[in-house]
Amino acid sequence: MNDVVIPSRNHTGPVHAAGVSIKDLRKSYGSNEVLKGISLDVAPGAVVCLIGPSGSGKSTLLRCVNLLEQPNEGTIHVGGFEATDLDVDIDKMRRKVGMVFQQFNLFPHLNALRNCTIAQTKVLKRSQAAADKVAQANLDRVGLGHLADRFPDQLSGGQQQRVAIARALSMDPELMLFDEPTSALDPETVGDVLSVMRNLAKEGMTMLVVTHEMGFAREVADRVVFMDGGVVVEEGVAERVISNPTQGRTKEFLKRVLDPTHIEISE
């Protein structure tokens, strides 16, 4: 299942979307190898969901893509950059890669608008006025334009996560990474965040999403990649992998996720 190019859907709208190409990626913490040779390709504009039990290495894989974790072996190409090249300009590469965290990580000392402008002015050297305009447009896009002057502690979890998405989008990324974006949310706010992500996918953004939301994966993702124990166990078209998994470990995992109250009696 290596080297499968995941095709893009037909998208409308002019978006510069970057692809990702990961080859034989390995990552260890001391003697604990968490990624054991992962290969994965994401075509520009495609949406790929990474699923799997906790500790399977999916978050680590995601964090390797923008080098929040340094891989030990293998190569990662993102857009025109080789992330694993030691001479790569990390900061320049990261501008093209938006990241959304499980814990939002909004800057608590800045209001929603400033959260979205700080990197624009400091990194992209946009004027404050230009940055404000981009930020406001992206806050509108996630449905929070009217809360631009609120501070993070005045927003609900779901609102904070949508601001975090707007913050990433304000840098005009060509690829978005989502690390369990709804896992820390109250159930009633999950839907708002997912619908923002759904719209983003429709607009043609390349998205790599670590998630436990199987409904979202089935509906929005082009491909689903099931990881376990640091390897890709199964991957394919979202609907097929989720409804009709071929590997035993995938079946077992999906059964537990889709029917958490199901109790298996074994001796």
Binding site: L68, D91, R94, R95, G98, M99, N105, A119, V123
Partner: peptide, 10 residues
């Protein structure tokens, strides 16, 4: 906080 800032290219 540091990770979020770095991921924005700072």
């Amino acid at each position: 906080q540091m990770e979020a800032a770095r991921s924005l290219g700072m």
